[in-house]
Structures are given as C-alpha cells and as structure tokens.
C-alpha cells in the first residue's frame, strides 16, 4: 500500500531496506549519524545527515556499518572505492556535489576506471549519494547541478529522481548495481511529499518515465525541472497546448528511446535543466534529437536552463537564475510561432 512520504523519508526507507537485505551494505559520510560514538552520553544520531536522510540507521545497524567520517571527502570517498573493490557495497554520502572539487580523484580516476583498466576483473559496487541544485539560497558552492559532469565520465552511472517513489526504487537499484553510481538528490525537492509503495522494489537505471502525456510538444526534465515542466504543461494546457513531459531519471545510462519516441509523437522538444547550459545534459538531449530525431522535428530544439554563471545567493537573483515554468511556456510558444 502506498503511503505519503517525503523525498527524504523515501531515501531513508530505501537505506533501511538495503542495509537489512545485505550485510555488505555500509553507509559512510559526514554526519550520517551526527554524534555517532556517543551512545554512552545518550546521543546516537543527532543529525542523521544534514537532511535527516540517514536518521535511525546507526541505531538499527550499529557503528561498524554506519560511520561518521571526518570532513575528508577525498579520503573517505577513496576508502569507499577501496572497500567496494574488496567486497563491501558502500553508500557514501558526499554532502553536496560541489564538494567534488576536493574529492574527485577517487571517482574520476579510480572508481570509474578500475573495471576497465583491470580487464573487467573487478566490481566496484559503490553508490555516492549527493545533494544537487539551487533553490534554497545556498549560493555558489552548495547549489551546483554538476550531474552532467559525472554523467560524462565513462564507468560511472548518474541517477536523479524527481519523486519520493522514484527516489526509493532508484536508490535501491543503485545500491544493488555492481557499477559505481552517483545518486543525485535535489535540494529543493527534499521536503516534497508523494505516494511511496511499501516494501522492497527497484526501478531499473536507464529508464525514463513519461509523466504526462500530450501530443503538441515534449518537455524533457530531470530532478527539479520535471516539476517545472509539469507546471509549464498545466499553463500550456490552459492555452489549449498539450505537452508531454519526460522525466529522464537516469542520465547515464540515458534512455534515448523514450525521448525519441516522444519526439516522434510531438515533433517538438524543449529540454529543461537547472544546470548551466554549456556541455551539459540539455545539450546532450538536443544533440540526440538532431542526430537521431531530425526527421521528426517540426521546430528547433530549445534549451531552457540556468545561465552560464555561478549560482547567486540573493533570493531575487536565485529566482532569476533558475529555469521557470514561464520560461518553458515562452520557449514552446516560440517553437509554435516558428511553425506557424
């Protein structure tokens, strides 16, 4: 029976299930317990991670398997890679994806490449849970949407759910995947509530979802911008324009077929992404549509993204930075105008 859970609650439930079903799963990261090791003082998980996503794990599974790390991203991510290569199935928390700046080598040069460099003779079943995106006034170093960067690295998979139900199923699939997976949790969605099925279920990586059907235009979103797209679709519907909304869910592997199939039905694509526009997922989708969907296109592919700037602090500036439903509507109307 589905019941309503927040995004954070869904992730918490998935972690409990993963740890219960496999003793090799461990969770490590900064403050994943918070106050871990102070049980004698009546303190166990003061934080459960900065969003509370790991709350209760240390009590249920103990300090051997649930480890607060020093603020030492390169060290503990590297250790997680080594642990994954030698028989554990670690879920490491990189508190914000921006911290890749001090933690990149273990992901870029070790986890991503070990299997290939070693001729397929190793598994690296590592999941890196990390928080992405803007919308909470966390400014330039805690708000980036760097998933396009990890999705560009061969050997890694990159996943970004947009609903609590998907977050649970995709996280369970990520943890059980034998490849290293970067699992992106969108900051502005953490308190979003939605129906989440009970029990243990996985959503396969590499499957996009058509979350709204419509025949006039395809809006492709991911994470936060699935909701931006749905909001835009509602506004367009009021004008008599029916938008289809595709939630990518997984950036690598990328479900090209679902995007192209939708394009074939609608003839128009607008990609909506809160990341910056250069060399990113929006460009990748645009390229896919031009390269393999050219004959279906009735209008140029449009990208609605953040601008090529750092993420600003002030709420006014941040609002100007993030793609909006109105911006999507405008892009669609422009496409239709082109066609008229």
């Amino acid at each position: 029976m589905p019941r309503e859970l927040s995004f954070t609650g869904a992730i918490n439930e998935a972690l409990h299930i993963a740890m219960r079903s496999d003793a090799d799963v461990i969770v490590l990261g900064e403050d994943v317990a918070g106050g871990g090791g102070r049980k004698d003082q009546g303190i166990e998980d003061a934080w459960g991670g900065p969003f509370g996503a790991t709350r209760g794990l240390i009590g249920a599974f103990g300090p051997e398997r649930v480890r607060d790390t020093p603020i030492s991203e390169m060290g503990f991510l590297g250790a997680a890679v080594g642990a994954a290569a030698t028989g554990l199935r670690p879920v490491a928390e990189l508190m914000f994806i921006d911290f890749l700046g001090v933690a990149l080598d273990p992901l870029l040069n070790q986890a991503a490449k070990m299997r290939y460099m070693f001729g397929g003779k190793v598994r690296v079943p590592l999941t890196v849970r990390t928080n992405v995106g803007a919308g909470n006034c966390t400014a330039s170093q805690h708000s980036q949407a760097l998933y396009g960067f990890t999705a560009a690295i061969p050997g890694l998979k990159t996943v970004i759910p947009s609903t609590p139900a998907d977050a649970k199923g995709l996280l369970l699939a990520s943890i059980r995947d034998d490849a290293p997976v970067v699992f992106c949790e969108t900051k502005s969605l953490m308190n979003l509530k939605g129906d989440v099925p009970e029990g243990d279920y996985e959503i396969p990586l590499g499957l996009a979802a058509v979350v709204r059907e419509g025949g006039d235009v395809t809006l492709v979103g991911l994470g936060r911008t699935v909701h931006t797209s749905l909001e835009a679709a509602a506004k367009l519907a009021a004008e008599g324009i029916e938008a289809e909304v595709v939630d990518l869910r997984s950036l690598y592997p990328l479900d090209e077929a679902t995007v192209l199939e939708s394009l074939r039905r609608t003839g128009r694509v607008v990609v909506v992404d809160e990341a910056t526009p250069h060399c990113g997922i929006a460009s990748e989708i645009a390229s896919l549509c031009v390269d393999r969907g050219f004959d279906f296109l009735d209008a140029p592919v449009k990208k609605v993204t953040a601008p090529h700037t750092p993420v600003p602090f002030s709420p006014v500036l941040e609002e100007a930075y993030l793609p909006t439903a109105d911006g999507v509507v405008e892009a669609v109307l422009e496409q239709l105008g082109w066609n008229r």
Binding site: D24, I26, G78, A79, Q110
Partner: peptide
C-alpha cells in the same frame, strides 16, 4: 596507479572491508 597518492585511500578501504567483515 597513475595518480600519485591515490593508492592510499584504496588500501584504507580494503582495511575497512577487512574490519567490517
């Protein structure tokens, strides 16, 4: 390893595996 210093955390991880298991 082609990256100077990158083997150290990998060994720490292997030691963590030995410890947990």
């Amino acid at each position: 390893n082609g990256i100077v210093g990158a083997g150290l955390p990998l060994a720490v991880g292997a030691a963590l595996t030995a410890s947990v298991k």
